[in-house]
Design a protein around this nucleic acid. Sequence first.
DNA 1: CTCTTTTTTTCGAGCCTCGAAAAAAAGAAT
DNA 2: ATTCTTTTTTTCGAGGCTCGAAAAAAAGAG
Lengths: 413, 413
Amino acid sequence: MSVGIRHDDLRKRNRAMVITAVRRAFQPSRTEIARATGLSHSTISAISSDLIEEGILAETKGGEAVSLKRGRPQVALALKPEAAAVVTIVLALNFLSVAVVDYAGQTVTSEQRKLSTLTLPEEELIGECLAMVRRRLGEAGGRRIMRMVLAVQGTTDAGRRTMLWSPITPHSGIAFADRLEGAFNIPVTVENDCNMIAEALKWRDPERYRNDFIAILLSHGIGMGLVLKGELFTGTQSSGGEFGHMIHRPDGALCRCGRRGCVEAYAGNYAIWRAARQSSEDEEPVADISDADMKALAATARAKDGPEREAFRRAGEAIGFGLGSLFALIDPAPVAMVGIGAAAFDLIEPHLREAIARTAGGQHSGAISFAVEPDEVPLIREGCAMATLTFIDQEVFAAGAPAEAPLQNRELA
Amino acid sequence: MSVGIRHDDLRKRNRAMVITAVRRAFQPSRTEIARATGLSHSTISAISSDLIEEGILAETKGGEAVSLKRGRPQVALALKPEAAAVVTIVLALNFLSVAVVDYAGQTVTSEQRKLSTLTLPEEELIGECLAMVRRRLGEAGGRRIMRMVLAVQGTTDAGRRTMLWSPITPHSGIAFADRLEGAFNIPVTVENDCNMIAEALKWRDPERYRNDFIAILLSHGIGMGLVLKGELFTGTQSSGGEFGHMIHRPDGALCRCGRRGCVEAYAGNYAIWRAARQSSEDEEPVADISDADMKALAATARAKDGPEREAFRRAGEAIGFGLGSLFALIDPAPVAMVGIGAAAFDLIEPHLREAIARTAGGQHSGAISFAVEPDEVPLIREGCAMATLTFIDQEVFAAGAPAEAPLQNRELA
DNA sequence: CTCTTTTTTTCGAGCCTCGAAAAAAAGAAT
DNA sequence: ATTCTTTTTTTCGAGGCTCGAAAAAAAGAG
């Protein structure tokens, strides 16, 4: 049973609400915070003056929009950028990107480059990450780095400390959190890339992506981030949500995971590629297909009715039946299609909708809306930053830890 | 955003914790409650004396186990049976059952009988329910009925007031909550039967069914109750969790829902029956198959290797692939197989395990454990009672409503 | 009958939130 | 320029809540 509530928990929660309200709204006044949280003006006044004194919030002075109303003008509150900073590390297929983001969500410094994740030995892969983080910390201008987050395709453990398996490298069970913490003495979490995409969508378009929605990453493999009742949905023992490995056709096409008939074995880039070349479904998936090749394939499919178009049809069908099964479990919800595969969503969508309509989950399949966002890396980075910053909001600053930088971290810069 | 926490919410929550602790433990003392909740002895003392004064808890006096320790003996606290009562209504295929259960969970009076749900007009079906409830209320001895709950196969709306669709009747969209409230002026919820089974399992065997588990009902159709992170998992717009209508084979066997290839179209009683008779997969499902017929089918399948055994094999395969897809989303968890179909689980299990092993979710398929519970009705009734009683714990009594019966309800008896 | 042990209650201290009132800071009116 | 109005923010006392310490209660042990 969860533990009883104490008096200080109450303060902690209400501090968290105030911080959250400031992060969500654009520079709200105390009055607006009171309205958003339902707490009294006196409480908001007390909490926000604490938070300002602790260096977590700041009043934004200076010439913003002149108020047109009578009365004492509202004083806008904002997150103090210097209160904290986080490091985001996005590790994708043949690609690494590191950024330092301040407490207000602005990128301080960033770096990204290609590297051959499929062939790199484990230690070198870790070394590349450490090196890029070290370089960016050097450019972070003495900011107080409070947490790091590494996002990667594949599954992580439930504690979000270890990459259990990922398609981007042959090595499994890499304890990224331990290694990064060992090197920099800053707490680290390891996250699934699609979960971070979902997190980012909540901030990018809170109207559309509010309580229940699905982000599907169409790239070499198929990933999913799922938000239900406003909460990121994860597995009980892992990052979970392996939509790409739901079974589309028992004993069907060979999947990259070694099993047969997964959705991904029909809808992943390699599967579309394989089908377009009219290869056997038993053929081993190829390791990587360039974005240019996939775009060329889509162009061909649009131009003429041949095996390329059929390949996209099958991909749409697989995703559609997969979504149908998913919707049977959770009811339909808005979907965002992310990644290079989304650039060919025009080829996929009709077949996807047709398949959904043949499932129990697709009872109102016409009403299900799909949005398309081909570029996933910025979303992953944004999701990492927001997930970690809100963690700091809730768990560090709400608990009353002051924003003053401890000495050793100042030195580190 | 959720609303801020006030002072009185704090008391409400801690009252709820105390009531919950008493319901979970067997007659705990105040000291044990303090340990379980993490609250101080003084707080527990204050809260429990309030609850006793309000007639919600009672000290159990009299000759229980004589303490062998020195010191002041612990005073056991128990739920006061008279504090409240609930009515549970279980409506299943050709079967209706009503019970009155007191606040401590003991059945006060119950009644059950066969009725022909498939052919009964809507008003008569509702009328039968009302009549049986009225009879049981007459036997309830003036108890203070605070809520009613009706469990039924099929889907309900998210507000749990209306049966959207059910296989037990051709009528859809029956507003059971409105009708029962109209007749008895007592708040009503409508629940999915499998969700109630899952709720019951939590109380029957909290060791095994703790945070994450799955209850699968194998009967004419296939239902599921899913508990994740200790919470009943429901759809975003309906009762959700329609495991039986996940797609096993696209465009496969004809399902009772009118679509094709659902898990249920291979594993429901009607599907096993159809396959055993070597009928076409396109044949319309039969309406009902008696338990005796299903048992005879299982006996034949055990005796010789023929179409009957093959039918169960296919059922196992369908459930296995379905679970594999489900486990891809949520990670594996303990499973309880409930209902008449579970009586033939020996015929199903090997094929089920074999299928799971061929999916991504079945990475440790040998470790997934199945329990079998052929008789579902007592579980549903128990789940209804516990779900409703804990609702009263949390939402009515924790909020400070006294257990004194209002006059009109006293009159009603 | 007194001592020891354990449970439960009592009591004052320290927080927290709230409503009301006061203070602050502007535009509008004179 | 000065005095209303209006709106936002802060201040202040009241009322609740939980907690720790101490007291009271209720048994067995000696």
